[in-house]
Design a protein around this nucleic acid. Structure first.
Lengths: 266, 266
DNA sequence: GGAAAAGATTCCATAATGCGGAAAATTTGC
DNA sequence: GCAAATTTTCCGCATTATGGAATCTTTTCC
């Protein structure tokens, strides 16, 4: 049964590498989290063997921790005895942060925009030097851009990300570039600080930004920022499409949708 | 800032009580899970004090475990230092089980049906003696029934739940009644085995079931079952509305929508 | 504005807790 | 049918998490 799959490393959108932080570690919890991440990385239920190998845990140890996770509903087993994520995670996953407001408000606007443009609409927020996709509306057509909720991408390869960097001004852009070294994801990724600064600042000025196959080849985006009533950046709204379908005429629709959401944010 | 809220015990839809199972417990993980559940139970970020009190953990212990959860992205802190769920949970919450298929397939049909009927559409699966809400489509009107994803309800108080019991035949209904004792949630809840059996079996025969304010007063539902290609019950589809708005004419639309989803299930 | 209280955080000696080697049970492959 | 691979249980050991107390920080109230 266990089809010997590669560890499916979806380069861009997958989980960040394990952060070997020094402070405040609890061994069991780190291990449990590693197991959850590993299970999530596989599209199908995973065997104990694989989990042990991937996490470097002794079979016995992994088994014990998984048993406890099962008790708590965070993990389940399929009929074949393989491990998959538990339903309790659904309950937890939908209740986070104050973003529930943002998501609830954005959802209907996003659906309308999706029907208008016929392409995938994404809602993102910034976390550190990454954007996190927290909601999406996908059209009912064969080929469309599929972004996983919870996925991450570095700021400088996405449309809204560039606006988020730009919102901090020139110094913030330089600081970001220095911190991250602007890793390239495709041949179009901006890896030059000067070019990035130029693009970000113009984006802020114009009120929108593009992503021209900078995160993934063949995918193009248009993004705008969302602001709450205090003017703070609350997130970003973007449309993603196969590059040859993308139209700059969408900018106005997107901008209007973004404004509608921003107006409703307390 | 910390408004002294009651532990918001949303009777029906909240998390199940901690199951004191005997086997395979790991203390830290149980405690971590309890902390996550407690945080999820509060609509706003929670202070360490409250978390310690609710979980019965010493402040020092709770603090240490929370620090580790933060390291793993499962928990975050707001500017005031209060705890809320972490974004990593989003990533995990959307990747569970094979239900991704069901959800992906159902989503567009649900949205169409919602627009058609103008009411909330829910997608549920069975887990033990409960239904779990795994997807929803809510209309854009002021008053509509709001069901949280991940929430649970006992089978006998919901429309699809009654069909799920009925699918097992008369013996299954009796067994369910014996196990659970048919607790009442409103004055309309069926607490008599004979009445429940009658309703469930007729539901199976007719291909739909109703919920007449049996889970919550003023809320009425209509439910149908979803079957995969092998004929197994894959889940349930239902429409929920304020009882005075509910129309039996919806049954046909709902049934058709359910069939459309069932047909697409491998 | 200062003192007192409440809450959050760090420290550390202690033993309880989780660890993992190995063996038993179960499943899979040939 | 046996043999190999994998899962599960067991148990002595020391690593790991524990929680009381001390310290630091923030809030409250006079």
């Amino acid at each position: 049964m266990t089809s010997a799959k590669h560890p499916p490393s979806s380069a861009l959108t997958s989980a960040p590498a394990p952060k070997p932080q020094a402070a405040a570690r609890i061994q069991v919890i780190d291990r449990a989290a590693a197991l959850l991440d590993t299970i999530a990385r596989y599209p199908e239920p995973v065997s104990l063997k694989i989990l042990g190998a991937e996490t470097g845990l002794h079979a016995s140890t992994a088994h014990r921790i998984l048993a406890s996770l099962i008790q708590n509903g965070l993990v389940e087993r399929d009929p074949a005895g393989h491990y998959r994520l538990g339903l309790r995670l659904l309950q937890l996953g939908v209740r986070l942060r104050g973003d529930v407001d943002l998501r609830a408000i954005a959802r209907p606007v996003m659906e309308t925009l999706r029907d208008q443009l016929g392409e995938s609409i994404n809602l993102t927020i910034r976390e550190g030097d990454e954007v996190v996709y927290i909601e999406k509306a996908t059209p009912n057509r064969m080929i469309h851009v599929q972004q996983l909720i919870g996925a991450r991408a570095p700021l400088h390869v996405t449309a809204v990300g560039k606006l988020m960097i730009g919102a901090g001004g020139a110094e913030a852009i330089n600081a970001y570039a220095e911190r991250t070294n602007l890793p390239a994801y495709t041949r179009n990724t901006l890896t030059d600080v000067a070019a990035l600064r130029e693009v970000c600042l113009r984006g802020i000025h114009e009120g929108y930004a593009l992503d021209d196959e900078e995160a993934e080849l063949d995918v193009g985006c248009i993004g705008v920022l969302l602001h709450d009533s205090t003017g703070r950046v609350a997130g970003g709204l973007s449309v993603s499409a196969p590059i040859e379908r993308r139209q700059l005429a969408w900018i106005e629709d997107l901008r209007r949708a973004g404004q509608r959401i921003s107006e409703q944010l307390g």
